Computed example of a mutant assay.
Amino acid sequence: MPDVMVGRIGRPHGLRGDVTVAVSTDDPDTRFAPGSVLDSDRGPLTVAARRRSGGALVLRFEGVEDRDAAEALRGTALSVAAETLPEVDDPDEFYDHQLVGLAVRHADGRALGEVIDVWHPPASPVLLVRRPDGTEEAVPFVRALVPTVDLAGGFLVVEPPDGMFG
């Protein structure tokens, strides 16, 4: 199973090695608890401390002792193994990694493309779909537009409004 991104390290915070983290998990208290080990392209990082500063999540990792070491981590993606994620009880909720790679079909059966990314703006999630011609279409991930998600079948159905996929 693939790794699932749970955050990205931002700017240093202070002089002692703390960093801000852009969170991309719905369970930051568990994922970023002290002692948690997160995967990264720089190797495993162990959370030594966690706190909030205003609205920002601030972490300190073991072995990151100063601002220069914290700056070196800027932009690093933090992930966990997908198999460590809890099962989702709600049939209308999905992890991003479950959606990426699904074939996208029109309600009439036509192939529209493939999900290549999931964005999380403030409103509802948005699926980024690569069309067969290589162009991309952003599809709000709401039931009115995406009535069917068939993980076992490897596809989802989109009922696009006029102009979408046009």
Score class of each variant (00 low, 15 high):
P2M: 12
T30V: 11
S79M: 02
V21S: 07
T25F: 03
A72L: 07
R50Y: 06
P12A: 15
V19A: 01
D26F: 04
A49R: 15
A77F: 03
A22L: 12
A72N: 06
R16L: 14
A48I: 04
E71P: 00
M5A: 10
P28V: 05
A82H: 07
S79W: 00
V37K: 13
V19Y: 03
D39K: 10
R31P: 01
R8K: 14
R51L: 10
T30Y: 02
I9D: 01
R31Y: 02
D41N: 08
S40C: 08
G17R: 01
D3N: 14
G7C: 09
D41Y: 05
L38K: 03
G10V: 14
L15C: 04
A56V: 09
G14H: 00
R42F: 06
G63E: 06
A56F: 08
A81C: 12
L73S: 05
G75D: 08
S53F: 09
S53I: 09
A77T: 03
D41C: 04
D29F: 07
V80E: 05
S79Y: 00
G63Q: 06
L45Y: 03
L38R: 02
D66I: 00
L57S: 05
G55F: 08
T76W: 06
G35A: 13
M5Q: 15
V58I: 14
P44M: 10
G63D: 07
A22Q: 15
L57T: 15
A49V: 04
G10L: 13
T46H: 12
A33T: 12
V6N: 02
A77E: 10
S40N: 11
R42W: 05
A72K: 09
S53W: 12
G75E: 10
L73V: 07
V80S: 00
T30F: 01
R11F: 14
P2F: 07
S40Y: 07
F32A: 02
F61G: 02
A81N: 14
R11H: 15
G75H: 09
L73A: 07
D18I: 00
M5C: 08
G17V: 00
E65D: 12
V80D: 03
A82Q: 11
M5V: 13
A82C: 06
G35M: 12
D39N: 11
V80L: 10
V19H: 01
L15S: 14
V19E: 02
S24M: 13
E83I: 06
G14R: 00
L15A: 11
T76P: 05
S36E: 12
S53D: 15
T76D: 04
G35S: 10
H13A: 15
V23G: 02
V23W: 01
L78C: 03
D26C: 09
A77L: 07
F61R: 00
P12Y: 03
M5P: 02
D3H: 15
R51F: 06
R74V: 08
G17Q: 04
G55N: 13
I9K: 04
R31T: 13
D68V: 09
L73K: 01
I9C: 05
D26L: 10
P2T: 14
T20S: 11
V23E: 09
P28C: 03
G35Y: 09
L57W: 12
E83S: 11
S40R: 12
A33Q: 06
T30R: 15
V21I: 10
D29P: 03
V23Q: 01
T20D: 08
P12K: 01
A56H: 13
V80A: 06
